[in-house]
Design a protein around this nucleic acid. Structure first.
Length: 713
RNA sequence: GGCCGCAUGGCUCAGUUGGUUAGAGCGUUCGAUUCACAUUCGAGAGGUCCUAGGUUCGAAUCCUAGUGCGGCCACCA
């Protein structure tokens, strides 16, 4: 028997047929299966049969020594479910099977605050109302987002129930529940104690319009035609797309094996700039492509990711980097007469000046460049230097790699064990800082009187406004309030710290700023708290143990490690890998040793679903039209680990026809007379049928534990 | 550039350790039908399992090479 037939049987018998036949009154049955009419009844029947009961209310004596636990990948608290979520069916099948077998079974539901995504959605809403997030201090904004999410939080639960998932709702957890937050912060402190957290200056992808940095994953790449300027640079001619960053050059680089320039390596050259001559050192780095441009690159560490990497490798022989562009997208004072100009205007002016000075060799205006753009507003992102918190990943990844090699971790999904290993071995340190409000605020506090170089910005009511001070920027905001930006040393003589904290927008501490970690939410006297929040994945990474530790007493001991983690392969690195690392670090045990990865759900033509293509399937609509069973069956049948799944109307119809077929089979059996039922032949058939089904279901489900890891293993 | 995957009837895909005539749904063709069910029933057509080698008594399945498609990561200033 092929696997598809087995799944077919598995599905219908674990979740459907047997309970239906036992528990739903069959008299006066409709001639057709009306899912709208019967789904509720069937759910009730399942509850009676003990298939839907929460983990704490199993029939007496049902608990066996074995347990089976599974955490639901928490959907975004603010979003309605999409069809991908209906893949939870796989988890539901496993859970129901183990419950029916008598294992102590838990399927733990939750919701994720989904930091950037949710804040983005909320800001769009603000925008429609003609407002912007910069008009609100962070406490107010946070509360507004909180309320907004609260309104929608019930939707996901209702939908999950509608699709028939037998989750234990008495154990529901939200990533922003206070006990969850407290536990997450504890881990941060633990990491810090183990010296796995550090603060470092790194380049971030910053949108000067939206006022936040984005992770690499959120950057949208766009191909654009940008002029490539060949500029005279001391003894060289070099190509650059960004002449305006020239003020921030700290070196010029060539390839170590490039004979053309070998004699310059290590020398300091004098370069004519628009604001007069300056000196830079010539360094050799393999990053330089000999064939590109002239094979010479100017190194501007604070405004280009690659340049920053080069600078880090040559730190010892080079001066400190210089910031030429600020977080508002304006040129800094370093640019002399160009200070305060926007990047675009400055580029134009500087190119004109360079042409006048004869510094431009020629311009290639056919050059095609990959621009990094903001996925929200489309503006070009500026790589800008910012002090952020990082987690050292090597020590966290090492034990996981070991266990992977030892075969202690099984990944179901062709090839994904290799991909996981590849990620783990090439992992960079993890930037966990985000400049958004919607998230868990970092419990980092700076002592005010020892750190007067901290820059803050805060909102102030007009009545509290004092006369303008030098070095402090004040800007009037729409509703008559002022945004004050400046260094603490300039601000505190005029404004009380409490006032600053009350309207606080952002805190920007220098790289060498001393800090303490304080987990209590109290307002520390004489300290000011970091305004950055954690990357959403930092809390998600702790989900298995955090949800169990903050749940009913004894749950952690009873259900950890979890039995399997089931999710889509697209979040293997962001979520699964990080859960393995954080779980192992914090509890000393892997949070799970089996990972089942399902594929992406695509449309009937195999295309990715997207709103713009208009091929999105709404699972709730399908459930309404064809029934939840039909939806679930259509998704799960013929699907295999790690493979994408194409699905369309026809598949739902076919699945619906099957539910109808079963319905009528049951109805047919009802029509048999007692004599017919009792006849020896009929009984034999029934017994044999029942025996075979149990065998198949058990075999298939248990085989899950024995399967190989796809083609690779 | 690095890593990974996929290739089976018109379409979307199953095919666990190699073992008899390679399966499903949809589509398609022919036929049936006042009934448990038209959300039906019966029958059929349709595949050199990408190509070329190899291992084997035996290959869709294992190995090698090639071709085509896709994914992830890193990306030339």
């Amino acid at each position: 028997m092929g696997r598809s037939q087995k799944l077919w049987t598995l599905y219908h018998n674990v979740g459907n047929l047997s309970s239906k036949r036992k528990c739903v009154r069959m008299d006066n049955m409709d001639s057709k299966y009306d899912h709208k009419l019967y789904e509720q009844k069937i759910n009730e029947a399942w509850a009676v049969a003990g298939v839907n009961t929460p983990s704490d209310q199993p029939a007496a004596g049902r608990l066996k020594p074995g347990y089976f636990s599974l955490v639901l990948p928490p959907p975004n608290a603010n979003d309605p479910l999409h069809v991908g979520h209906a893949m939870y069916t796989i988890e539901d099948i496993l859970v129901r099977f183990h419950r029916m077998r008598g294992d102590d079974t838990l399927w733990l539901p939750g919701a994720d605050h989904a930091g950037i995504e949710t804040q983005f959605v909320f800001e769009k809403k603000l925008q429609k109302a003609g407002k912007s997030r910069f008009q609100f201090d962070r406490d107010t904004l946070y509360q507004m987002v909180w309320d907004y999410v609260q309104e929608n939080k019930q939707v996901a639960r209702q939908q999950l129930e509608r699709l028939g998932f037998s989750l234990d709702w008495s154990r529901f957890k939200y990533t922003l529940d206070s006990d969850v937050v407290a536990r997450v912060l504890q881990t941060f402190q633990h990491l810090h104690r183990e010296k796995l957290v550090y603060r470092d200056m790194q380049l971030v992808n910053y949108c000067t319009k939206c006022g936040t940095a984005f992770s690499d994953l959120e950057v949208k790449h766009k191909t654009a035609r940008t002029p490539l300027y060949y500029i005279k640079y001391g003894p060289f001619v070099l190509a650059t797309t960004r002449p305006e960053t020239k003020f921030g050059d700290t070196a010029v680089a060539v390839h170590p094996d490039d004979e053309r320039y070998a004699r310059y390596i290590g020398q300091t050259i004098t370069v004519q700039g628009v604001n007069g001559p300056f000196q830079v050192k010539v360094i050799a780095d393999e990053y330089v492509e000999r064939e590109f441009g002239t094979g010479v690159v100017k190194i501007t560490p604070y405004h280009d990711h690659n340049d920053f990497a080069v600078w880090q490798r040559h730190k010892d022989e080079l001066p400190s980097p210089i910031q030429v562009i600020d977080f508002q997208g304006k040129m800094t004072t370093t640019a002399g007469p160009y200070a305060g100009m926007s990047v675009a205007a400055a580029r134009e002016a500087i190119v004109a000046k360079m042409q006048e000075m004869g510094l431009i060799d020629h311009i290639d205006d056919k050059y095609e460049n990959q621009l990094s753009c903001c996925y929200r507003c489309g503006r070009t992102l500026e790589p800008l230097p910012k002090a952020q918190f990082f987690i050292k990943t090597k020590p966290l990844a090492a034990p996981i790699i070991e266990k992977l090699d030892a075969g202690e971790i099984t990944v179901y999904g062709t090839g994904y064990d290799k991909i996981l290993r590849n990620w783990l071995t090439n992992l960079r340190d993890w930037n966990i800082s985000r400049q958004i409000v919607w998230g868990i605020r970092q419990p980092v506090w700076y002592k005010v009187d020892e750190n007067s170089e901290i820059q803050v910005s805060f909102l102030l009511d007009k009545k509290d406004k004092k006369a303008d001070i030098d070095q402090v920027l004040s800007k009037e905001i729409a509703d008559g309030r002022f945004l004050i930006t400046g260094l603490l040393k300039d601000i505190l003589p005029v404004y009380d710290l409490k006032l600053v904290k009350k309207g606080l927008q952002s805190v920007d501490a220098p790289i060498d700023c001393a800090f303490v970690i304080e987990l209590e939410k109290t307002d520390l006297d004489g300290y000011i708290q970091e305004t950055d929040t954690f990357d959403t994945w930092f809390s998600s990474a702790q989900w298995p143990f955090v949800t169990l530790m903050t749940n009913k007493p004894g749950d952690f001991e009873r259900f950890y490690p979890t039995s399997v983690l089931e999710t889509g392969y697209d979040i293997l690195p962001f979520w699964v890998m990080r859960m393995l690392m954080m779980g192992q670090f914090e509890t000393g045990k892997l949070p799970f040793s089996r990972v089942y990865l399902h594929g992406l759900v695509r449309d009937s033509k195999g295309q990715k679903m997207s709103k713009s293509k208009g091929n999105v399937i709404n699972p709730l609509e399908v459930a309404d039209k064809y029934g939840a069973d039909a939806l679930r069956f259509a998704l799960v049948v013929r699907s295999s680990a790690g493979q994408d799944k194409s699905i369309g109307e026809q598949d739902f119809k076919a699945a619906r026809n099957l539910t109808n077929k079963l319905w009528n089979a049951a109805r047919f059996s009802q029509m048999l007379t007692d004599e017919q039922k009792d006849s020896a032949g009929s009984q034999k058939v029934n017994e044999e049928f029942s025996r075979q089904i149990k065998q198949i279901v058990t075999d298939v489900s248990e085989a899950f534990g024995k399967l190989q890891t796809g083609a690779g293993g």
